[in-house]
Each structure stands twice: as structure tokens, then as C-alpha cells.
Simulated assay, not measured.
Amino acid sequence: MIKEYSANVLLVEDEENMHEALKLNLEMEGYSVTSAYDGMAALKASQAEYFDVIIMDIMLPEMDGISVTESIRLQNAEVPILMLSARNHTSDKVLGLRKGADDYITKPFDLEELLLRVAKLIEKNKKLQDRDFSVGDEFEFGDNKVNFASQEAITWEGQKIDLSKKEAMLLKLLFENKNEVVTREKILQVVWGYSVYPSTRTIDNFILSFRKYFEKDTRNPIFFHSVRGMGYKFTA
């Protein structure tokens, strides 16, 4: 019996029979699977959607798996990548890991072992995502106060602000990761879920709104920052 989707998987494999067999078994494990059959499609999918893990074949049309992995890492994506390869030389494995893969398995492989490695990567990633401290119903910074229970804020000027659900979710995520850059991928996962994804401009507009609400000098913010090429940061 197929369970509710417990994770989102990008499967990148150009050999059709293997792709379909892996997809079927992953779905039977309860995962939602997105398919890509070449390197460029894989790169586009990774940029458009959040994944809990990527299964990446090395030998691909258009763009090889090593290059795709390297490009994903240059975007500061934290998604775990399990690399598949017919090459079993140590040097190939070292290259794959050096370019950003989290794990490496050679073909032919035992299906049960692959599924176990996928589950371990997903579990490890979720633990990393949950490692930050939790913010309660209220959070104060500077002369501002945010109440998450009522989705309201009192600004440093004493003005009452009604927050949208997504504004409250993004504020809470930034507060829970104070003084650390929160990647766009993590924001997509936590605030927008797995279905519809905003552009970077949309997230930037949220940050601009937070500056308007909470900063005394919006041109020289001390709390809310956009970190070019990386993500967003709340400084306590």
C-alpha cells in the first residue's frame, strides 16, 4: 500500500527501463517522484522546485551528472544528492563527492541498498533543517514585537500591523535562524510548500515589507538582509 508522500525526490536517469523501475519503487516507499531524463532538464527542475533528495546518474545527455551537481552546489542548494554511476573506480567516486555529491553508488546495485541510502539522506537532511531553536508565540527585537498566534505586529513606532500567513511564516523562519543565511530553497520548502514557487523577486518584496514595518532606516537595515547569491538573513 502506497503511503502519503513523505518526501519529494528528483530522479535523473536517462535509461528508460531503469528509470521506470526506480520511480515505481520510490513511489511504493511513499515518495513523490519528479522525473528528468537529461542534465539540462535536471538543472531546471532543481531550480524550480524543492527536493528532499536528488538521485543523479552521471552519464546523461545534454549535460553530465557531475556538471549538474556542480551547478546545483554553486547555487548554494543544500539538497542531498545520491550519485549513480557505472564507473566503479575510486577516482570517479572521489570526483563525484568532491563536486558535491553526498553519496555514491555504482551500477549494478542492490535496490534495497539504494532505497536505504535514499532514506538515510532524507532523514539526515530533515534533522539539519530542524536543528534551529524554536520561536514561541511572541518574539521581540529592537522596539518591535511580533505575535504569531494573532498574526499581528507592533512596530517601533507603535503601529499595529496585520500580518499575512506567509509573512508570519517567513518571519518565524528568519527568527529561528537568526544571524544565519536562510537559503531560498529552505524558504520555498517551509513557507510555500511543494506546489507553487515564487520568484526571487517575490521573496525580496517580503523582505522590503519587513524593512518598511520594522526598520528605522529602510536604506540602512540592521535586521533584514538579502545576501546576494545565497539567501536572506535576520540579524539579532
Rank of each mutant, 00 (worst) to 15 (best):
F210L: 09
K145N: 15
E15N: 12
V68M: 02
T183K: 14
D57T: 11
P61D: 08
V53H: 11
T69Y: 07
E16K: 06
Q75A: 10
G231N: 11
I154H: 11
R211A: 12
S85K: 06
Y213D: 03
Q75V: 11
S71Y: 13
V9K: 00
G136Q: 08
G65Y: 05
E180A: 08
T155C: 11
Y31D: 03
G142A: 07
I66S: 09
M230T: 15
L208K: 15
I2A: 11
N125H: 15
S46V: 11
V33K: 00
S226P: 13
E167R: 00
E140L: 12
D38N: 07
G142P: 04
S35M: 01
G231H: 12
N144K: 05
E140S: 14
V53W: 08
P198E: 01
F133T: 10
R201K: 12
F148G: 03
Q129P: 01
A36E: 00
R98W: 06
G231D: 06
L10C: 02
E167H: 00
K178G: 08
F210R: 10
Y232H: 02
M28V: 13
K233D: 14
Q75G: 12
N179A: 14
L128A: 13
P80Q: 13
A101E: 04
V190I: 14
T218F: 14
T235N: 14
Q151C: 05
N76E: 10
M1N: 14
A119H: 15
T200N: 14
I105Q: 09
D204G: 05
V146M: 02
G229S: 08
E13V: 00
S6M: 07
F51M: 03
I81V: 12
S46I: 13
N88Q: 10
E157G: 11
L82I: 07
E113F: 04
A149K: 12
G39D: 12
A153V: 09
K93E: 06
D130V: 04
F51W: 04
P221E: 09
A7M: 03
P61V: 10
Y213R: 13
Q129G: 01
A119I: 13
A153I: 06
L188I: 02
L82H: 03
V9E: 00
T90R: 15
T183F: 04
L10I: 07
R98V: 10
P198M: 02
V79E: 02
E112A: 13
I81G: 04
A21N: 15
V146R: 00
Y5L: 05
K166H: 07
F139G: 12
F234K: 09
V94Q: 15
E167N: 00
A48I: 08
V9W: 00
Q129F: 02
F148V: 07
K160N: 06
E78Y: 03
G65Q: 08
F210E: 09
